[in-house]
C-alpha cells in the first residue's frame, strides 16, 4: 500500500462518518445535510460542564478511544483489494477494535462520577457477551468459508457467489450485532433516553463531539467491514473496485442508520434471551453448514 493511503484513510473515514451523521439527520429529524456540521460547531465552542470529583483521566481515555478504535479498525479493511495495514488476521483485529468500545463506554460512564452514565456503562458490559458471541461467530463463519482471516482473501474467496447468498443467517446476525456493538438504534441501551442519555449524559463540548463522532465512525467501519465479509468486496461490473466498495458501504451504512429512526429501543433482557437462545445457536448451525460445504 502506498504511503498516501495512510494519510487518506482518516480523511475517507471522516467523510464516511460525516455522511452517516448527515443521513441520520435526514432520515430521522428531517434536518438538512449540514445539520451535523452545525452540531459540530456548537459543540466545539460549548463550554465544558464539570461534574463533582470526576476521574478526568479515565473519561478522556474513554472518549478518545472510541474514534481511535474506529480508525484502527479501519486500517485493515480493504478498499481496493488490500487494507492500509496488510494484516493476515485482519478479521480478528477488526473485532478486537470493536470490543474497545466496551472499555470506552465503561470508562466514560464510570469516570464522570454520575449515576446515569454509570448505569449506562454497566448496561453495555452486562450485555457485552450477548452482543459479542453472535458477532464473533458470524465473523468466523465468513473466515471459515474463505479459509482465511484476511479481509482481502475473504473478499477474493467470493468470486462468483457472495457469502450473503449462501450464509444469510451469518450476515443478518452480523448486521444486528454490529448495531449492538456500536450501541446504535434499537440496541442503544447504554445511551438510551430512559437513562437521560446514559453514558453520554454528562458529556458536553468537545468530549460529546468526540464521543458521538466515534460512535458514527464505529458504525461506518462496521458497515465497511460487511462489504469484504459478505458482499463480495470490490466485485461488480463496469466500475473499478474501490467505487464498488464505496457504493456497497454506503448501502449498508444507510440501512444501519435508517434502522434507528424506524425501530424503538428493544428491552435489554428480551434481547439477552434472544441472543443466547436464538442467535448463538443459529450462528453455530450456520457455521456447521458452511463447515460441511467447505470440507465436502
Amino acid at each position: 500500500m502506498p504511503a498516501w493511503a495512510v494519510v487518506a484513510l482518516p480523511l475517507v473515514l471522516a467523510a464516511l462518518t460525516y455522511s452517516a451523521a448527515a443521513m441520520d439527520a435526514v432520515f430521522r429529524t428531517g434536518d438538512g445535510l449540514v445539520a451535523p456540521l452545525r452540531e459540530c460547531a456548537r459543540l466545539i465552542v460549548q463550554q465544558r460542564r464539570r461534574t463533582y470529583m470526576p476521574d478526568l483521566l479515565l473519561v478522556r481515555i474513554g472518549v478518545i478511544s472510541l474514534p481511535a478504535a474506529a480508525l484502527l479498525a479501519a486500517m485493515v479493511i480493504p478498499i481496493d483489494g488490500r487494507g492500509v495495514w496488510d494484516l493476515s488476521v485482519g478479521v480478528v483485529w477488526f473485532n478486537a477494535m470493536e470490543v474497545v468500545a466496551w472499555a470506552s463506554l465503561w470508562l466514560t460512564g464510570w469516570g464522570v462520577n454520575s449515576v446515569f452514565p454509570l448505569v449506562g456503562g454497566y448496561r453495555f458490559l452486562a450485555q457485552g457477551l450477548a452482543y459479542e458471541l453472535p458477532h464473533m461467530f458470524a465473523l468466523i463463519t465468513a473466515g471459515l468459508a474463505a479459509g482465511s482471516l484476511d479481509f482481502g482473501e475473504v473478499a477474493a474467496a467470493q468470486d462468483g457467489l457472495w457469502f450473503v447468498v449462501w450464509m444469510p443467517v451469518a450476515f443478518a446476525v452480523y448486521l444486528l450485532s454490529a448495531l449492538a456493538m456500536t450501541f446504535w438504534g434499537p440496541l442503544g441501551h447504554p445511551v438510551a433516553g430512559d437513562l437521560a442519555g446514559g453514558v453520554a449524559a454528562e458529556l458536553s463540548g468537545p468530549d460529546r463531539l468526540l464521543f458521538f463522532a466515534g460512535r458514527f465512525a464505529l458504525l461506518t467501519v462496521a458497515a465497511a467491514a460487511a462489504v469484504p465479509l459478505f458482499l463480495g468486496g470490490g466485485a461488480g461490473p463496469w466500475l473499478p473496485g474501490w467505487a464498488w466498495s464505496l457504493i456497497k458501504t454506503y448501502a449498508v451504512l444507510a440501512l444501519l442508520v435508517w434502522v434507528r429512526g424506524r425501530f424503538p429501543v428493544i428491552r435489554m433482557d428480551r434481547f439477552m434471551d434472544v441472543a443466547w437462545m436464538v442467535l448463538i445457536p443459529a450462528t453455530l448451525l450456520q457455521a456447521l453448514v458452511v463447515g460441511i460445504v467447505v470440507v465436502s
Partner: peptide
C-alpha cells in the same frame, strides 16, 4: 500476528 491480536482481543474483554 494471530497470537498478538488474540491477546489484545481477549485481554480487553477479560479485563472489562
Amino acid at each position: 500476528d494471530y497470537l498478538g491480536v488474540l491477546v489484545i482481543l481477549m485481554m480487553i474483554m477479560e479485563m472489562l
